[in-house]
């Protein structure tokens, strides 16, 4: 059994130690808000926060989490910055199909936690998640709005 703290709750999961955190969240814990897109840390749909930093959970072995706190999209509105990001996302109407947006919201939250007033360059550096619907400009608008 591997201990794993997600959104403040500690679970003990019976999986192989090298299981990617993504599939523990989705299949073992039933938290499907975090998405599988590519499995090779390219697209960012699986982004979660590990101790407040954006992490691509599809390439993050569950046994590497250790005592770190994992935050997923399911709890993002409980975070003050995350809640602001969500409001901005809704207000700008950033999503289209929405599949990548859990990861985008998590990446944006991590960015604003680290850099409360990001420049366009900060946004470009931090927001590397793919969006097949091409919502990149709307996402940048939403981040600027959330930053205030």
């Amino acid at each position: 059994m591997i201990p794993l703290t997600v959104n403040g709750t500690t679970h003990h999961v019976d999986v192989e130690p090298d299981t990617p955190l993504l599939f523990v969240l989705r299949d073992t814990l039933g938290m499907t808000g975090t998405k599988y897109g590519c499995g090779i840390a390219q697209c960012g749909a699986c982004t979660v926060l590990v101790d407040g930093e954006a992490m691509r959970s599809c390439q993050f072995p569950v046994d590497a989490v250790g005592a770190s706190q994992v935050t997923t999209i399911e709890a993002i509105e409980e975070d003050a910055v995350g809640a602001r990001v969500v409001e901005a996302w809704v207000s700008v109407e950033a999503p289209q199909c929405g599949y990548c947006q859990s990861g985008q919201v998590m990446a944006a939250t991590a960015l604003l936690k680290a850099v409360p007033k990001p420049t366009d360059e900060d946004i470009a550096d931090a927001m590397t998640n793919l969006c097949r619907c091409g919502t990149y400009n709307m996402i940048a608008d939403a981040i600027r709005q959330a930053a205030g």
């Binding site: 989705r26 299949d27 039933g30 499907t32 808000g33 975090t34 998405k35 599988y36 997923t72 999209i73 399911e74 993002i76 509105e77 969500v86 996302w89 809704v90 109407e93 950033a94 999503p95 929405g98 599949y99 947006q101 859990s102 919201v105």
Partner: peptide
Amino acid sequence: VARLDMRDKSTGRAVYAIDQKLDGMLY
């Protein structure tokens, strides 16, 4: 008019085919 699906899609609550679950299901 404001889109109806924005909050669910901004909070991970939107459910896609890949997220579906059934009791006793095999993957």
